[in-house]
Design a protein around this nucleic acid. Structure first.
Ligand SMILES: [Mn+2]
Ligand SMILES: [Mn+2]
Ligand SMILES: [Zn+2]
Ligand SMILES: [Zn+2]
Lengths: 136, 136
DNA sequence: TTGCAAATACAACCAGGTTGCAAAATAAAG
DNA sequence: CTTTATTTTGCAACCTGGTTGTATTTGCAA
């Protein structure tokens, strides 16, 4: 069962409307969503509550949280999907949309002695086909 | 002549204390600085004025503006220096410091038809040697 | 059904950045 | 050295994305 209520129950967290609806939204999404994206889908969920709901979904393993290159958090359902992992993303600076690219992420660089690597991120920005077409 | 007043004069912009002092600060810096970095060096320059001063230096070619991976702008003097161009950078998540790495930036990926590339950025985060040592 | 821990709403706050506008400063012309 | 037109500055207000504190409400187990 991948319905939100059962997933939440199985994860051992309280089943609340905010969690159920946020998880539904994440499951329905085709791309990782920002807090603002989700908020516009669930206008009657309090802003701060939504931040905490999303973090709780991450904490219990039902969602993934990643920073995009603008430093904005993006959330996705982490079911059996395992999407968006072995490829990089393109961000349109005009519409803000994210597109999956076929390319693999670049390998992490060698660091000087004593340095510890936490994360690498490859940011690719530009104008998507739609936006480029409209302005032309 | 690479003194700020002459550079500003030669660039055809008005010579103001804020511009002179900001350009001095950028020239003295060993790394690209954020607005906050520069502000702490020039506490009596108005916050908004500093944003505009920095943008004016960029507009007249005396400074370079780049976004770091947290989406924060970083400014550097763009004299005959041409530093920080062919290599990538490491950001310490503990102290916020930036270190130059020897590695070259990864090549830009192929994009789907119609997409236009503006910029790529490789973000490498972790803990620097100093911070790693202190916590150990 | 009751009771307590967990979750929610609301207000306040923060960083980084932008906008509008009146007052002040630059630099050119007289 | 003044006058003047144009920039620049300072200040207040605002914006997005995010966090913290706390009183109230809710989930759910006993
Ligand atoms: Mn993807
Ligand atoms: Mn460098
Ligand atoms: Zn677009
Ligand atoms: Zn450090």
């Amino acid at each position: 069962m991948s319905n939100p209520v059962d997933l939440l129950r199985a994860a051992g967290v309280r089943v609340t409307p905010g969690r159920v609806r946020s998880l539904e939204a994440l499951q329905a999404a085709t791309q990782p969503m920002s807090h603002a994206d989700i908020e516009s889908l669930l206008p009657d969920v309090d802003r701060v509550t939504l931040y905490r709901v999303l973090d709780s979904l991450v904490a219990c393993g039902l969602a993934l949280k990643a920073v995009d290159t603008r430093g904005v958090f993006r959330f996705s359902a982490s079911g059996p999907h395992r999407q968006h992992d072995g490829h990089i993303h393109f961000r349109c600076t005009s519409c803000g949309g994210v597109s999956c690219l076929k390319a693999a992420p670049p390998p992490p660089p060698k660091l000087p002695r004593g340095f510890r690597l936490d994360a690498v991120e490859f940011d690719v920005r530009g104008t998507c086909a739609q936006c480029a077409g409209q302005s032309a």
